Amino acid sequence: MRLLHTSDWHVGRTFHGRDLLAEQESVLGGLADLVADAGVDTVVVAGDIYDRAVPAAEAVQVCTRVLARIRAAGAEIVITPGNHDSAARLGAFSDFAAAGGLHLRTRTAELDRPVVLHDEHGPVALYGIPYLEPEPARHALAVPDAKGHAGVLTEAMRRVRADLAERAGGTRSVVLAHAFVTGGAACDSERTIAVGGVEHVPLSVFDGVDYVALGHLHGPQRLAEHVRYSGSPLAYSFSEVNHHKSVWLVDLDADGLGAVERHELPVPRRLATLRGRLDDLLLDGEHERLVDHYLSVELTDPVRPTDPLRRLQERFPHAVHLVWSPESTAPRLKYTEAVRGRSDQEMAHDFVADCRGEAPSKRERRLLDEALVAVGREEG
């Protein structure tokens, strides 16, 4: 059996205010072509299908079209929810969907009831472990003393292994889970799942199965030969600028895990970062290659430029993020040192100068002084 492991679609997410639905549908819809070309039997999605628990209608429509294309290409689909999804909403009509080849494993109490598919070597049991919020999961799994994510996932995997032990010899196993496993590398676009400061789950929790398809972390990575993150299919923050977005093609043979192959996905619009003074960035011909990239720009002008993002977008229409970090050799004072012996007027003038990079004009100083006097009069 050949599996395609993907996760963290986050359909409906924007990128610094830019709509991504068209890009998401293009990349995710292309998985159907991969299913057909690579002979994929089953597509597994390890959580965060949507970016919100209540997705917009347009996001649902995109997801519906993508899943329909994948199913029409010939693959069964197994999905479990992540921390961004609503398990109850995602699992609605799951019994009916399963009849059409879409298996939604969303119920915590049923995580040890696998989807069982068959190939020429016999049965393959696919267990979907929904994202387990520790407090409700402790009660749903009847383990009141379980601590954090590690505790509830340990119980979940105990139940999976117990069910697997009762099945006929030769049953191969795949687990879908949405968690932060120790050794994984995080990035800025993932919502924290820390509870009481602890979010990591030991890798050993997932011992005893043939393959573990993980979701939550957005960079593709291998924690063990049989335990991997596929990562998100698109970049959702500039911290992912060096990611090579991909999916895993997983082959199960008669003895279990056979081989795993990485397949890189197309990039609708690349990311880049720029640093320098505004005029230099607008005039330097070396940056022409970045005109079609999403850009994060760090401006180093000593004085904050007027309307810098609009000016940048005249040359770089996809500049979406801007910070001002003036180059300065002056030491930064502690707050107590900065205000010691200074009047309210002096501190207001210095605040404007610090925010903008140059001192306020005479007119601005007069307006600040008049405002402070007015405030003092009202307080008096």
Rank of each mutant, 00 (worst) to 15 (best):
L3Q: 02
H10V: 07
R13A: 08
T14A: 04
R18E: 06
L20W: 00
V27C: 07
A36V: 09
A38K: 12
R52C: 14
A53S: 15
V60H: 10
R65V: 12
V66L: 08
R71T: 06
A75L: 14
E76G: 14
I77R: 11
T80N: 06
P81Q: 08
G82W: 07
N83F: 11
N83S: 13
N83T: 09
G91M: 03
G91H: 04
F93C: 09
F96W: 14
L102Q: 04
R107P: 03
T108Y: 08
L111K: 02
V116M: 06
D119L: 03
G128W: 03
P130C: 07
P134D: 00
P136D: 10
H139V: 15
H139I: 13
A142M: 13
P144K: 09
A146D: 07
R161D: 01
L164Y: 03
R167W: 01
T171L: 01
R172T: 13
V175T: 01
L176A: 12
A179C: 11
F180L: 02
V181N: 01
T182Q: 08
T192K: 11
A194E: 12
G196T: 09
G197C: 08
G197V: 10
E199V: 15
H200C: 02
V201M: 02
L203G: 02
F206Q: 01
D207G: 09
V212S: 04
A213V: 08
Q221P: 09
R222G: 02
L223Q: 01
S230C: 14
S237N: 03
F238K: 03
H243V: 00
K245I: 13
D251Q: 02
D253W: 05
D255A: 07
G256Y: 08
G256H: 10
E261N: 03
H263Y: 01
E264H: 11
P266K: 13
V267P: 05
R270F: 05
L271I: 07
T273Q: 11
R277A: 05
D280K: 02
L282E: 04
L282R: 06
L283K: 15
E286W: 12
E286Y: 13
E288M: 07
R289C: 15
D292M: 11
S296P: 08
V297E: 01
E298N: 02
T300R: 10
V303C: 10
V303E: 07
R311W: 14
R311H: 15
L312Y: 00
F316D: 00
H318W: 04
W324C: 15
S328H: 07
A330E: 09
T336G: 11
R340S: 15
R342Q: 03
R342K: 07
S343N: 04
V352D: 00
C355S: 03
R356T: 13
P360T: 05
P360C: 11
S361W: 04
R365Q: 04
R365P: 00
R366S: 15
A371T: 04
V375L: 07
R377A: 14
